[in-house]
Nucleic acid binder design. Structure first.
Length: 467
RNA sequence: GGCGGCGUGGCCAAGUGGCUUAAGGCGAAGGUCUGCAAAACCUUUAUUCAUCGGUUCGAAUCCGAUCGCCGCCUCCA
């Protein structure tokens, strides 16, 4: 399995620290607002990656942090006149609701910054003791010059950064690049006691502290959006490695941006759609397929046309899944020649190559086409064939991508009064057809469609489904 | 100013030296099936990969230049 590692800037053979076990940490949301569909890309693609590891038989321990103490939360709490905790709680709830609607499997742990103050303070103290941090009147800064590898992830060097035009002026810092580990409390802000007085943690320290606490000093994978490479992840490395003298993360993975008309979707530009709004119009499966059709690292333009075209494509998969379910009820039939093995192999080859979901999805479409061909060419097909076909879809489309849900496929089955009534209409229509009374036959079909029942004629008779 | 990414058919998107005279999806056109639909199947839809040079027996893939777009360096997934 090959994974592109931002740290080494190339694809590398993936080797976990412990055989068949993986530790993975992903930078989650700062809970001050509903997350947008660009954030969702990270949540969904890490979900796909995590699911694929599961497919491969790995036991994954996956942590996603919730940043619940932060400038933006404080700002929001002032705007709304509620406490920062209330802001955080509200959007943590919303986060879990949205993530569930997007069919993202839950992480094993969702550590919160506010629940790890002891660990954070201990880490800062350690950095101070080791000479990597200095205290200026209750503010503690990290001394970037002390850490030799600073810039190794983002490919920057301290001198280039210093010549950059947009570095803020802060007289308290020895060096403009130094960043806050601990911020002295201001009036009305949430604060915690520490050896440096009351205050709260800086932005980057929580991830170092929580990743090391829950997953270990060295972990397999750390992922996040492209915009976190610098400074966030760079600083995490500096904090963690200065403290442990061990490699913090073996594989760094970064996701490309979701753009609107070639511009990064972001809260600050205001060009964003929240995931919950998009979910009102499109299913989780459509959104997931839309994202999976592009490799995770590249940019992806978000558009209504794109979602629409994905929705049409997904229909093909769903309709085939329906045929597969129906085929399970066959009593007997031919056992067609079908090379499941080579399809599994193609799927794995694609996904083994840095999670190339775009190719993985193409394999599913190839499969759909091949099964449709089998169905078109044979009158009766054995249920065993459909069982194998269902298993393939379950492992790939359902299990890895989450772009199909057998439970939401309604196939007509007798029993209820409603179904019997529809069957009655179908019988009447069949009679009308025999009498070549096309006007009546079409009227029945059209009117049933208006109340949400779709009829489909085939050689073997007419079937219906709710739409 | 520093660093990095990208430019493939009408649209989206894989491919990064020969297996590709470029996957897959959407759209479009024709055909089979059907009373008509729908679905499905078959066929067609890039002699070409921003442009121009170069390396090579061979390049969308490597090198150089040019044009265009985007990102990071400030909070951001």
């Amino acid at each position: 399995m090959q994974i592109y590692n931002t740290l080494t800037k190339r694809k590398e053979e993936f080797k976990s620290i412990e055989p068949s076990k993986i530790t993975m940490y992903v930078c989650g949301p700062t809970v001050y607002d509903y997350f947008h569909i660009g954030n969702a890309r990270t949540f969904i693609m890490t979900d796909v990656i995590r699911r694929y590891f599961g497919y491969k038989g790995y036991d994954v321990t996956y942590a996603m942090n919730l940043t619940d103490v932060d400038d933006k939360i404080i700002k929001k709490s002032n705007e709304e006149g509620i406490t920062p905790d209330d802001v955080a709680d509200k959007f943590i709830d919303a986060f879990f609701e949205d993530i569930e609607k997007l069919k993202v499997k839950k992480a094993n742990i969702y550590p919160k910054a506010t629940k790890h103050m002891g660990d954070i303070i201990k880490l800062i103290k350690d950095l101070e003791d080791k000479g990597f941090a200095y205290n200026v009147d209750g503010n503690v800064f990290y001394n970037v010059k002390k850490f030799e590898g600073y810039g190794k992830l983002s490919g920057k060097n301290v001198d280039d950064l210093l010549s950059g035009a947009r570095i803020e002026i802060n007289n308290e810092k020895d060096n403009p690049l130094d960043f806050a580990l601990w911020k002295k409390a201001k009036d009305g802000e949430p604060s915690w006691d520490s050896p440096w007085g009351k205050g709260r943690p800086g932005w980057h320290i929580e991830c170092s502290a929580m990743s090391m606490k829950h997953l270990g000093e060295t972990i397999d994978i750390h992922a996040g959006g492209n915009d976190l490479v610098f400074p966030h992840h760079e600083n995490e490395i500096a904090q963690s490695e200065a403290c442990t003298s061990k490699q913090f993360v073996n594989y760094w993975m970064h996701f490309g941006f979701l753009n609107i008309k070639d511009e990064k979707m972001s809260k600050s530009l205001g060009n964003f759609f929240t995931a919950r709004d998009i979910l009102k119009q499109y299913s989780a499966e459509v959104i997931r397929l839309f994202l999976c059709q592009t490799h995770y690292a590249g940019p992806l333009n978000f558009s209504e046309e794109g979602l629409k075209s994905t929705e049409n494509g997904l229909k093909k998969i769903t309709l085939l899944a329906e045929e597969v379910l129906k085929g399970l009820d066959n009593s007997e039939g031919v056992k067609p020649e079908f090379d499941f093995d080579s399809l599994y192999a193609s799927f794995e080859t694609a996904m083994d190559d840095d999670f190339n979901s775009s190719r993985g999805v193409a394999v599913i479409f190839d499969f759909v086409k091949a099964v449709n061909k089998v169905i078109a060419e044979n009158e009766n097909i054995s249920p065993e064939f459909f069982e194998k076909a269902k298993l393939f879809l379950e492992k790939t489309a359902v299990g890895v991508f989450g772009i199909l849900d057998f439970n939401s496929i309604s196939i007509s089955s007798g029993g209820s009064l409603e179904n019997e009534l529809v069957e009655l209409f179908i019988k009447m229509r069949t009679d009308a057809k025999t009498e070549k009374n096309w006007a009546l036959a079409d009227k029945i079909r059209d009117e049933l469609k208006e109340i949400g029942i779709e009829l489909k004629d085939s050689k073997t008779g007419t079937t219906f489904k709710k739409i």
